[in-house]
């Protein structure tokens, strides 16, 4: 009697096991049938990723430093941020992590670019339709909370080990913030200003491009910043399925208890994160320079 209360009346071991087997078999079948087609579909992406990584690694290091410095200056307009960014890369190079850092930089850049390309339109869609918002929000919640290893399984089953599955894993984790903040930014645009646009006869397109997106830009940019940070934090996990970069030595350090190796590469990831964060944040702040200086 008591036993029937402490033991939850589940479906039973054999039923569950048949069910799981059926799902696995089904997915394996799907993977056999469409795996190659999917791989072909993602092939251009793979080529681009490989090309970009090679470009970064083969470019002479002084030029890379120059480009980093220029980007930092253009983004932040601050000598301090520019100087520290270049210095961080010099230190990384001195400690022998230049090539891994370039590989990481490659995947982060491509991931961020794809997140912006996919995420902003979805965010706009969510902002324009409450229905889309109610449908997409739970999907984003799942993407952000589901343990990465869980979605690594089907991704690897479909596409095998390599850069593209790694990139997809990064995308799944890093895309939600930019979608959410684009949506939020557009929804937060002052309704009075939108009413004025309506009163002057603006079309939906004119409102979106002329009023909503420009005014949402600081928020959208906060989303880009978050996306960069989150894709950096995926570097180690991505290295488990064959993505080159700073994650690989960290993984090796974990497996072999190499303290110094782990610390060095971990700190290099942190340095990259801080540099990207400062540059993109100060750029975001400059985007809203027109605010705040008002005399009220």
């Amino acid at each position: 009697m008591w036993e029937s209360l402490t033991e939850f009346p589940d479906l039973g071991r054999s039923t569950l096991s048949t069910m799981k087997k059926a799902i696995d078999a089904g997915f394996k079948g799907f993977s056999r049938t469409y795996g190659e087609a999917l791989e072909n579909f993602f092939n251009p992406l793979l080529h681009f990723l490989v090309w970009f990584e090679k470009l970064l690694i083969n470019t002479p290091w002084p030029i890379i430093l120059l480009v980093i410095g220029a980007l930092a200056w253009l983004g932040s307009r601050s000598w301090k941020v520019t100087g520290l960014s270049v210095l961080a890369f010099v230190v990384i190079g001195v400690f022998g992590m230049w090539e891994d850092t370039m590989a990481t930089l490659a995947i982060i850049s491509v991931a961020t670019f794809l997140c912006i390309l996919i995420g902003i339109p979805i965010g706009i869609l969510m902002a324009r339709s409450d229905r889309a918002q109610t449908m997409i929000t739970p999907v984003l919640d799942v993407m952000q909370t589901i343990p990465s290893f869980v979605y690594l399984i089907p991704v690897v089953m479909l596409l095998g080990i390599g850069k593209v599955p790694g990139l997809i894993a990064v995308l799944i984790y890093a895309i939600p913030p930019i979608v959410r903040l684009t949506n939020l930014g557009i929804r937060l645009v002052d309704p009075d200003v939108l009413e004025a646009a309506d009163a002057f006869g603006a079309s939906p397109r004119q409102k979106l491009l002329g009023v909503q997106i420009p005014l949402a830009l600081p928020n959208i940019f906060a989303g880009v910043n978050q996306t960069i940070m989150m894709s950096l934090s995926m570097v180690v996990i991505a290295s488990m399925i064959g993505v080159r970069g700073l994650g690989v030595p960290v993984l090796r350090a974990v497996q072999n208890q190499y303290l110094a190796l782990g610390m060095m590469n971990g700190l290099a990831i942190v340095a990259l994160a801080i540099i990207f964060d400062r540059i993109s944040q100060s750029y975001g702040k400059r985007l809203q320079a027109y605010r705040g200086q008002g005399r009220d």
């Binding site: 200003v193 646009a197 009163a199 006869g201 830009l217 027109y290």
Partner: peptide, 17 residues
């Protein structure tokens, strides 16, 4: 709205950017 009328608002509703 474009050609025949325009509007001035209590809270100005200017485009801040």
């Amino acid at each position: 709205r474009r050609n025949k009328m325009s509007m001035v608002f209590q809270k100005f509703a200017l485009l801040p950017h």
